[in-house]
Design a protein around this nucleic acid. Structure first.
Lengths: 132, 132
DNA sequence: CTAAATGCCGTACTTAAGTACGGAGTCAAG
DNA sequence: CTTGACTCCGTACTTAAGTACGGCATTTAG
């Protein structure tokens, strides 16, 4: 389960810039593999998925430090603080899903309206995220 | 349906900084009401909802310019470009929801694991956003 | 075995999204 | 009718998340 990528291949496979990989390492989101003294580092191919996860989670509105916390859950399902964190993130995720569902419904309605020619109606997309 | 807020009250009601309101005006996300010559502007209370919408949509990973496009749909359900835009956003939203659902399932499983004491299992949150 | 491509690393620049500031004008409570 | 809070506007600063650069080392394709 390794396949040993260079940083350039890793970046390419994950669809990001090499500098981004290095940035994530500095941020502690990605560990940097030990460097063979006077040589180049090699990356396990699982790292590709890790980077993609980061990018996707960002697209869902999570910051890099939230993502760091989520990734930490991956290796530390132990203590009870972890459970609490997971539960909090879960609530946040459910909130986001609800907001998205509301937007989806409005946009769906809008598309349908355009299709059926029932023209001029207001499309109250804003009305949708109003709770809270 | 107005109630005429000052910029300060609008900002407070929406839970943002006054400067943020002004920034959104500059970005064209919020129109600035006409200024009574040599006086202060007044804002209709609907604007509160508009600002909240912007904030929520940001939390869902939309950029301000995407949000501008979504808001534009609100007043322009007319042409066929609009329909296309709405349909594209709809697909994006569905993608986001699917990603969130996957994360939710993993986190839910994690919480349940913690609860039932079935300790050391790996929690493959990353595995979850791997498609694509 | 050499040349072009990569990698390493530190530092500096960029972009998006705000936030802060300063000086002048305006509003509103006492 | 004054005083303190608020508004206006322009400009400048900040933070998060990258991106670029430059000089040197190493790797790899021909």
């Amino acid at each position: 389960m390794a396949a040993d990528l260079t940083i350039g291949k890793l970046a390419e496979a994950a669809g990001v810039n090499v500098e981004t990989i290095r940035y994530y390492q500095r941020r502690g989101l990605l560990e940097e593999p030990p460097k063979p003294p006077g040589g180049h580092r090699r990356y396990a191919s699982e790292q590709v998925r890790r980077v993609r996860f980061i990018k996707r989670a960002q697209a869902l509105g999570f910051t890099l430090s939230e993502i760091g916390a989520l990734l930490a859950l991956d290796t530390a399902c132990i203590c009870h603080d972890t459970r609490a964190l997971a539960a909090r993130k879960l609530a946040l995720i459910e909130q986001k899903m609800a907001d998205l569902a509301a937007m989806r419904d409005v946009l769906g309605g809008l598309v349908r309206q355009c299709d059926t020619g029932t023209g001029q109606t207001a499309c109250p997309i804003i009305d949708v995220l109003t709770r809270g």
